[in-house]
Amino acid sequence: MGITRKLLSVSTLGAVDFRSDKERTAAYTKATKKQAKKQTKLMKQQMKIQKKLDG
């Protein structure tokens, strides 16, 4: 969470990073996982369409 970090960031007008390295890493990991799931779903749909066309 880092409430202290967030308050310090706001009070210093951004001189201190709003998010810690751990928070940035967690957000990046979550976004990457979400994108991978989306990509997998899309690939499955494309394979289904391709099978219909082939066969």
Rank of each mutant, 00 (worst) to 15 (best):
Q50M: 15
T32Y: 13
V16M: 01
T25N: 08
K22P: 03
L42Y: 06
K37V: 03
K34Q: 14
R5V: 02
Y28H: 04
K51R: 14
K52P: 03
A15N: 13
I3N: 05
R24W: 07
K41E: 13
G14E: 03
S9D: 03
L42K: 15
R19M: 05
L13T: 09
K33T: 12
L53Y: 07
Q45T: 06
S9P: 06
I49T: 12
G2C: 02
L53D: 07
Q35D: 13
T32P: 01
T40S: 14
S20R: 05
D21P: 00
T4E: 13
D54E: 15
K37F: 12
K6M: 02
V16E: 00
Q45I: 00
M1F: 12
T29K: 11
K44W: 07
Q35I: 02
V16T: 05
I3R: 07
K48C: 03
D17W: 01
K41N: 13
S20P: 03
S20H: 10
L7V: 07
D17V: 01
S20D: 08
K48L: 06
R5D: 01
K38N: 13
A26V: 05
G55T: 12
T12E: 01
T12H: 11
L53E: 11
Q39A: 15
K34P: 04
L53W: 04
A26D: 15
T12C: 05
K48R: 15
Q45G: 07
M1G: 15
A31E: 15
K22C: 06
I49Y: 11
D54A: 15
D54G: 03
T12I: 04
A15T: 09
M43R: 14
I49Q: 15
K51H: 08
Y28F: 08
K6H: 05
L7W: 11
K48V: 08
D17L: 01
K6V: 00
K38I: 05
L42F: 04
M47Y: 11
A36V: 10
L13I: 10
R19Y: 15
A31Y: 05
L13V: 03
G14H: 02
